[in-house]
């Protein structure tokens, strides 16, 4: 018997997208395979690495631990949606400036997590930054430059607002 598909509507990075998915389609796979948004990375598929973090109605969540059907009718922001047109967001620029990435595999998850973190807490302490990014793994940088980038992003955001 063919698997039943569900018609769902997601607002992804401001654009309304309609897509038909089986119930078991992970949001991460829906974004990558059905919608072609391969900026969202998939590392572990059990919630540990944080690479797949996207914003669901503005809140960071694991897209590998969310079914696309559950997100029906909701707003998703992926790493592709963080920039303002051609201009990178303050968080993106801070990561580039501070060398907060090397291979870049973990970066989309960090960018989404940090974007939400700074929205909630525009001037986090070191400890709050550590707590905020504790659910994202990076195998390259050793985290020091990521922490610098978060503080720099806070500065840039404050300067530009």
């Amino acid at each position: 018997m063919p698997e039943r598909v569900h018609e769902i509507t997601l607002t992804v990075n401001g654009t309304v997208r309609r897509v038909a998915v089986p119930g078991r389609r992970l949001l991460s796979d829906c974004l990558r395979h059905d919608l072609g948004l391969t900026g969202t990375h998939v590392g572990c598929e059990h919630g540990v690495c944080g690479c797949c973090t996207v914003l669901l109605d503005g809140e960071p969540v694991r897209s590998c631990l969310t079914f696309a059907v559950t997100a029906d009718g909701h707003e998703i922001t992926t790493v592709e949606g963080l920039a303002d047109g051609e201009r990178m967001s303050p968080v993106q620029r801070a990561f580039a400036e501070c060398h907060g990435l090397q291979c870049g595999f973990c970066t989309p998850g960090f960018l989404c997590t940090v974007t939400a973190l700074l929205r909630e807490n525009p001037a986090p302490t070191d400890e709050e930054v550590l707590e905020g990014i504790s659910g994202n793994l990076c195998r390259c940088t050793g985290y020091q430059n990521i922490i610098k980038a978060v503080h720099r992003a806070a500065e840039l955001t404050a300067e530009e607002s």
Partner: peptide, 9 residues
Amino acid sequence: VAHPVIRNR
């Protein structure tokens, strides 16, 4: 309990 992002769901 877990990390902030897990706690959001």
